[in-house]
Design a protein around this nucleic acid. Sequence first.
DNA 1: TTGAAAGCGCTACCAA
DNA 2: TTGGTAGCGCTTTCAA
Lengths: 329, 329
Amino acid sequence: MTTIRDVAKRAGVSVATVSRALNGKGYVHEDTRKLIDKTIKELSYKPNEVARSLYKKKSRLIGLLLPDIRNPFFPELARGVEDEMQEHDFRLIIGNADENPKKEISYIETFKQNNVTGVISATNQTEMKHFEDLSFPVVFLDRTSNHYPSVYADGLAGGKMAAREMIRRGSKRICLLRGPVELKTAQDRFKGAIDELCNFNINFNVMTTASFTFADAEKAAAELFEKFPETDGVIASNDLGAAAILHEALKRGISVPEELQIIGYDDIPLSRLLFPPLSTIRQPAYDMGREAAKLLIQLLDGEISEHKNIQLPVRFIERQTTRKVENNG
Amino acid sequence: MTTIRDVAKRAGVSVATVSRALNGKGYVHEDTRKLIDKTIKELSYKPNEVARSLYKKKSRLIGLLLPDIRNPFFPELARGVEDEMQEHDFRLIIGNADENPKKEISYIETFKQNNVTGVISATNQTEMKHFEDLSFPVVFLDRTSNHYPSVYADGLAGGKMAAREMIRRGSKRICLLRGPVELKTAQDRFKGAIDELCNFNINFNVMTTASFTFADAEKAAAELFEKFPETDGVIASNDLGAAAILHEALKRGISVPEELQIIGYDDIPLSRLLFPPLSTIRQPAYDMGREAAKLLIQLLDGEISEHKNIQLPVRFIERQTTRKVENNG
DNA sequence: TTGAAAGCGCTACCAA
DNA sequence: TTGGTAGCGCTTTCAA
């Protein structure tokens, strides 16, 4: 292993000078700098980040906390965060909390112990107190917050949008899939849809799903058709749920979108691979990830003092689980 | 921030003693140990992993290199690794190489610089030389290797199995989706299928997909039906590809499985949500992840000296993109 | 059974 | 413009 001392010795200078050259701060004579650069190349020296981190109490590591890596929405988010961070020379420790507060807390501990420079959290289970008194900034992603900077999509508008498109396309007996009650984002879109449905005096039923996992989605889908067989439109809480509904409908010989319209939420990559391809409310997951990363970096650079919340717009992606309408207004 | 010195001072002992108590090595009087434990609790002291890592040149961090976090197969793998590692008190740095050798190398660098204890790599793009001369053990996952320990599923058998089931169910004009040529695992299953097809003297065509991404899968699907419209059976290189084929077939009004049978590969969670649910060759992704983690831990504990390769079995999951057969033999 | 002290590789202060 | 050195928090000799 090559250390800064090896470089110093070989270049015939002190470690202090090498360090200055390395970090581009403090005076270093042009010639000395060149010599040092050359030596570093020859030795293919790479500074030890652990030693740096010990001294500075900051690493080039960012913690990313995800609620469930198996839900395709989150890898998308992660990619956005990763790409932006990469450009700023930060690396990610991804913690998969698995919707389990214990795991989540243990990851926060890991982040602390490894001197991460900042954390982005997309989890929702944990009490806020675990995020207090941290020595690094935290940005919440896919989650609103009054006390912390956050990046999220406009759930209320998304819910309204889904309801409106459903109504415009003629569904009368609508069923709403309600996501986990503890999930603020899920409840926002749910409320948005209800608002709109009420405005239009449309009847609706509600099915609550316990979680956003594949298994719960399937269960809810089967139940829905038992409980509310007259349903002619489903507004799902996410695309996984919508996929399960679509699956169940086709299995029961219900034609989509003729007899039953379905609108999903998220627009995960698989949605267009379904058949018929899923109409859905698109959340810009990748962009949300990138924005969260940008926000964190601004925080680190001290460019922002207050708690900034960034709300990104959602939009309706018309595919084929909804019927066509002539007029676009 | 509480340090070991704070604990020592408060307990009225030296840092050396606290350290010994902490690590359970060397002599510490029972009473002293109790006192120290109590003090640690009172101060809720947590050792600084960075300082430890600097001295020992080893952290509690494991690097996990993934080729594409958006392909649902890999999060599944990751979960297996994560769960096993968690139980042994290791944490994961997940690097998403994005099928890009540059990124991959940069992550390997990050792993080195952060003193990871070991690395599990599920990537395939990079020349082996980047994995040589590393100061920590590397286990390959979803990839065979002669020179490194590895965990993978039996691709040859999987390919054969897919072909056999296809033949038994009466498809005569089969088209094989061939995954990326540089991917050994993809080629194994491909070869397995061809072997079997040849044994049975069945004709087949081949479509090569450039990558395992959603976009390439869609492109290949569209092309397949243009080039080989007479196809009555598709053996896909993975479930994403199979989903794209299924989608395209239904779009063209081809009935599945009556006119066209499809067999996927992987058994990712979404496969059963498709309609009709996808028949596929299941790779035990989660278990593969766990096995790789176990293998790495054994390596770290010095329990294994040689290069051990673990091959896991695959199996046919009969769902509804294949026709029923009476006899099971 | 305990403690003093060296040192892991680096940065930053201060003096030269 | 450069170098000596203290110190980041920890572990591990070695001596007491």
